[in-house]
């Protein structure tokens, strides 16, 4: 069966060990979490965890059933094929040299990156988009002095019909 990336959204009680339970449930059974995004919802007692993991349909169903068993997990939803808005944010630090500066600024403008800080020898950029768009931007910036990155992981929300 074909493996692919799945986006799973969990509503959980906002308690200290819940993330460990969720991570342990996947890790303990040998499934990797590719990205993870966690924060409280509008109700501070409930958090939303959005994680992505790669697997076949059957594997993903097993993961969902295992997560569903956790007492602190209120709801498990697979958003992969649901109409959703999916976004990721990346912070990108670039090294600046006399040689690359101009080209970098041109590229940054073309890519729709936001410049957050700009010093003599480095700058920090922000980019928001789908995972694929983030991947593409990073690929483009790589030869232009990419120093370090921090990605938030995918956040996803169903569209309301």
């Amino acid at each position: 069966m074909e493996k692919r990336e799945n986006v799973i959204s969990l509503l959980v009680h906002n308690k200290p060990d819940v993330l460990a339970r969720v991570a342990g449930t996947l890790g303990g059974k040998g499934y990797n979490i590719e990205s993870l995004c966690v924060d409280a919802t509008a109700n501070p007692e409930i958090s939303k965890i959005i994680l992505t993991t790669i697997g076949t349909k059957a594997t993903i169903q097993k993961i969902e059933a295992q997560l569903e068993r956790l007492i602190d997990v209120i709801r498990v939803e697979n958003l992969t094929d649901v109409e959703t808005v999916k976004r990721e944010l990346a912070l990108i630090r670039m090294n600046l040299t006399a040689d690359n500066k101009n080209e970098l600024i041109r590229t940054v403008n073309r890519l729709n990156c936001k410049i957050l800080t700009f010093n003599s020898d480095h700058c920090v950029l922000e980019f928001r988009g789908t995972k694929a768009e983030v991947d593409r931007v990073l690929e483009t910036l790589k030869p232009l002095g990419l120093d370090d990155i921090a990605r938030t992981g995918i956040a996803a929300l169903e569209r309301k019909n």
């Binding site: 059957a58 097993k62 059933a65 295992q66 569903e68």
Partner: peptide, 11 residues
Amino acid sequence: VDPSSINKNIV
């Protein structure tokens, strides 16, 4: 009673 037991080893 546990959905995670079903289709785990045998479809």
